[in-house]
Nucleic acid binder design. Structure first.
Lengths: 124, 124
DNA sequence: TCTTAATTACTAAGTTTTTCGTTTCCGAGC
DNA sequence: GCTCGGAAACGAAAAACTTAGTAATTAAGA
């Protein structure tokens, strides 16, 4: 519930970890920005670890393999909430309208999404 | 189309302008953060004006009354896109699922939202 | 054991964002 | 016109974020 804050770069890194499951510093750098110095990425991911958003295990040799300890849902809570609030004046309808406008959605996706809106009671 | 970038604080201010339509520096400060120094808000809104996101007219006396010159849709484009990409792995379905989970939506809202998903072709 | 190559740990510089003190301006009332 | 008070403009300090250089560490191989 506590207000999880991620900076832009931190989000870049978390995003890769969520996508890949786990990654070494080199893998992170490849995905985030190949031009970044190795140590830059290393520093950042260690900072995230200090904040408690990331942890690591020992890989082959001495390399650390990092993985997220918070899930994207957790991050989505605060970020999406903020976007909803600040940009769409708290209206989920407006937000959805945008989402639909900006992405070319297939009929299949649309159907799936309509389905999500079917039951106000718990689904999943 | 150019990639509109707003910092956190800048977004705070734009948000108030979108909500109120227009506002003086004092009104902005009240809404954004009452503890901020007057000059802090003043500087920021003038920066936004320089960037072309805000303009002003003359009010009573010498006070400036500011208003947004870009709409929230414009801002939503880049921000929502980023959220979708970084947090929901590009899946609008996941994003919507979250939106539904986190907000207690009325049946009326749900219906309206389902409606938005009806026609893949232009609506509005 | 010693050397090497690669990785982590540490420290700090560079950059951007946020904040505010000071000065300048301007209208209102004397 | 002169002074007062509130607001805008300016300049720059403070804080936060990003990046990377250097040192320490470690595993592997000679």
């Amino acid at each position: 519930m506590t207000n999880l804050h991620l900076t832009q770069r931190e989000l870049d890194i978390m995003s890769v970890l969520w996508e890949l499951g786990e990654a070494t510093v080199n893998e992170l750098r490849d995905k985030v920005d190949k031009n970044l110095a190795y140590t830059s990425v290393s520093t950042m991911v260690r900072t995230l670890e200090m904040k408690g958003y990331v942890s690591h295990r020992r890989g082959e040799g001495k390399t650390h393999i990092y993985f997220a300890t918070i899930d994207s849902e957790k991050a989505g809570e605060s970020v999406l909430g903020r976007v909803l609030d600040k940009i769409y004046g708290g209206s989920p309808i407006k937000l959805l309208a945008h989402l639909v406008d900006q992405n070319r959605l297939s009929e299949k996706e649309l159907a799936r999404m309509r389905d999500l809106l079917k039951r106000p009671t718990k689904r999943r």
